[in-house]
Simulated scan of single mutants.
Amino acid sequence: MDWQKGERSENVEVDSGDGDGGGPRFGGGRGLGLGGIVILAILGLVFFKDPTALLNQGNTGGQQVSAPRGQPAQVDPQTKDFVSAILGSTEKTWGDIFAAHGRQYVDPRLDLFSGGVNTACGAASTAVGPFYCPGDQKVYLDVAFFQELENRFHAAGDFARAYVIAHEVGHHVQNLLGIFDQVEQARRRGAPMEGADGLSVRQELQADCFAGVWANHSQQRLHWLQPGDIESALNAASKIGDDALQQQAQGRVVPDSFTHGTSAQRVKWFKAGFESGEMSSCNTFAGQP
């Protein structure tokens, strides 16, 4: 991937390590917005990590609480430049798409942290993996995750890393479109969150599809993909399916606990977005996901 062609974003910030990633944090899930802890649980499991690690659940009496103190994020210039280029390309892509539909796209910010960080959705540690917080409209990415992606998930390559960022930005797009609110309303009416047919799976697969839409538009504009790049993203998607991760972790697959979709589904919906380049191809909430 010739990522150097990408437009650079000015919305990448390197966390100072004081645990302050943005916005007030309160115990007991207060201050969560747009679906609260349920939506946060969806977003906190992007790579099948424990969603409760994203929240400080102590009895604080409503007092502000702190995240696990992180370390000042040590980000080498090339990594920061890469993240800036990918985020910048998502800003251009989604800005153009929203404008074509008579809407205004609001750029998210991306926080590179190490160890732990406070967010408007609660306190997060490295264990959570990459996530998006609707409360402060930020993507959070631990600087060590790219290495974990390669070592643990055997998903190497710049485009696999770009897919991770684009997936989280896909959640930001959902936020702007009001999809978080719609999911929360459906949950209140009794629609199941977990499970192979649950709202969580459908929301995550849509973020995969939106990542594919970004890949289509950025390729048309920049011609930056090289042989094997799409395969590296599809490989990453296949390695983080619920079935693959459950089989790896516990030796069996439990569809009733799915939150993100199977490997095949994640590949299917990324490809749907990439092949069409249209948001209309990403309605994962209709029919079978």
Rank of each mutant, 00 (worst) to 15 (best):
L43T: 10
Q74N: 15
Q63H: 12
A53C: 06
N59L: 14
I39G: 12
P72I: 01
A67Q: 02
A73H: 05
L45T: 13
R69S: 11
G58F: 11
V65K: 03
N56H: 09
A73D: 06
P72V: 07
T52K: 03
Q63S: 11
V65W: 05
V65H: 06
P72G: 06
F48N: 13
L40V: 05
G44E: 02
F48A: 13
P72R: 09
L40F: 11
P77E: 14
V65Y: 04
L40M: 14
D76Q: 04
A41I: 01
G44Q: 03
K49P: 05
Q78M: 06
L43I: 03
N59W: 13
T60M: 07
I39Y: 09
A41K: 13
I39V: 15
K49Y: 04
I42D: 11
P77F: 00
S66Q: 15
V75M: 02
I39M: 15
F48Q: 10
Q74G: 09
T60A: 09
P77I: 03
Q57H: 07
T52C: 01
Q64V: 06
P72C: 06
A67C: 08
A53L: 06
Q78C: 00
V75H: 00
L43W: 05
N59Y: 09
R69M: 12
D76W: 01
L54T: 01
V65C: 04
G70M: 07
Q78D: 10
Q74V: 07
D76N: 06
T52V: 03
K49G: 15
Q71I: 07
F47S: 11
L54C: 04
I42F: 14
Q57S: 08
F47L: 14
G70V: 06
G61S: 02
A53T: 03
P77C: 07
P77Y: 06
Q63V: 11
D76A: 00
F47Y: 15
L54Q: 12
N59T: 05
N59S: 09
G58E: 15
L43K: 00
D50Q: 01
Q74Y: 09
D50C: 02
N59G: 07
P72D: 03
V46Q: 12
A73C: 07
Q64R: 10
L45D: 15
F47R: 14
P77A: 09
A67N: 08
P77V: 10
P51M: 00
I42T: 13
A73W: 05
V46C: 04
S66A: 15
G61L: 09
L45K: 14
T52I: 01
P51V: 00
G58K: 12
G61N: 02
K49W: 01
L45W: 10
I42M: 14
G62D: 03
Q57I: 09
D50T: 05
N56G: 05
